[in-house]
Design a protein around this nucleic acid. Structure first.
Lengths: 213, 213
DNA sequence: CAAAACATACCAACCAGTCGGTATGTTAAA
DNA sequence: TTTAACATACCGACTGGTTGGTATGTTTTG
């Protein structure tokens, strides 16, 4: 199992290398604009290997989303923002952590599953579902801390921990889009700063605060 | 000028119909996955007409972004949210207006230029620039009201009117992505509600409020 | 040796873009 | 006012290259 390629050994097995290539190329070009040949070339693998591991291009998209979930999941699980005593501090430290990641090329810090969802949500429901699982699964890891922070401060706004957790991801995704449009990572950092300010204000407000309408 | 097509008359000239088709199809399939033939078929136009009006597919993308700017610009310019005496009310009414638009199919209310940017920012800088002009141009229409609201309430946070205006667009774009992932417009509405809450809190806070770090 | 993991060769469909031609004005000189 | 010259708008067959996918052969591993 996990045999190495003739073309380009010493870089792991074909499947992993194809998924790595997909992560990088799809992030900068999108899913539809990325051809199977291009992926094979980048991974140093032939088409035979590609269709041995993936039934079709859509299946690679699904696998890439899952691979993204696993790798980023591991990154966030071991990140230092969990090491705060206060739950609100953990949430704010998460936002800071996301802020610190934003640097260098856009392809390096933007979100694969956000990019793919936007593009293929209609044509490839299977990929859409895998992306949704990745996004909302990651958001769910924030929920306990948000919930605990609400309880600790007696916050009872017209919003839920799940909704705020999802919103953090929405702000990040939107910040990435604007950064791509402006071709400037600083725009993304601006968005994260607004997010941190929002969370801070939410938990500064009176226990019943943050309501409107 | 503006001659009608043989294939499908009584629907305006070929150029406009191609741009209408691009708006609808690209929103649901993305730019790369949309073929010229598909656009021609949907517009009731032949390839000859397509390449008469657009030098290449990229040029259509640029024109589609500009067309989007013009049509949505007219929509927002005549929208009723401008009819409030207080500038902050105008800003909040804008957010309400954006909220009300979210209904029905995702392809009907999501943003063409946000979708395109995400996909082609690297491969087609010309389209990226046209999308950026659309997004930040629209954001700029909010700036005077935000600025006036800040002045009226003596708000001096560590953020600018331009940055908050941009952030409104980031939240909307991100909300659209999550709605696509979840295949549920309600997710987008949640995001807009958080945005309104944020703006409300920003202007409720003490004059020097909303600072952190 | 059996089966998984690759490589090679190939195909039909589709792709963006081209090109020669037609239909319908518009302009302006005779 | 006729008409020649020119411009714009559009048509549709065609092309060279690319696409996702397949069929089959070879190599490695357990």
């Amino acid at each position: 199992m996990a045999r190495k390629t003739n073309i380009d050994p010493d870089r792991g097995d074909a499947r992993t290398r194809l998924l790595d290539a997909a992560r990088d190329i799809v992030r900068s070009q999108g899913f539809a604009a990325t051809s199977v040949d291009q992926l094979c070339k980048a991974a140093g693998v032939t088409k035979g290997a590609f269709f041995h591991h993936f039934a079709n291009k859509e299946a690679l998209g699904v696998a890439a989303a899952q691979y993204w979930s696993e790798t980023t999941g591991a990154l966030f699980a071991t990140a230092p923002y969990h090491d705060h005593a206060d739950p609100l501090d953990r949430v704010l430290a998460y936002v800071d952590f996301r802020r610190d990641i934003i640097a260098g090329d856009l392809e390096a810090f933007t979100c694969l599953v956000g990019t793919m969802t936007q593009e293929v949500y209609h044509a490839h429901p299977a990929i859409r579902e895998a992306c949704a699982a990745s996004i909302f699964g990651h958001a769910a890891t924030l929920e306990p801390d948000i919930e605990a922070a609400m309880k600790a401060r007696g916050i009872k706004g017209d919003w839920t921990a799940a909704s705020l957790a999802a919103h953090t991801q929405a702000v990040l995704q939107g910040a990435f889009i604007l950064a791509k449009a402006a071709d400037d990572p600083a725009v993304a950092i601006d968005g994260v700063d607004h997010l941190k300010r929002y969370i801070t204000l939410l938990f500064q407000a009176s226990p019943m605060g943050g309501q409107h309408d």
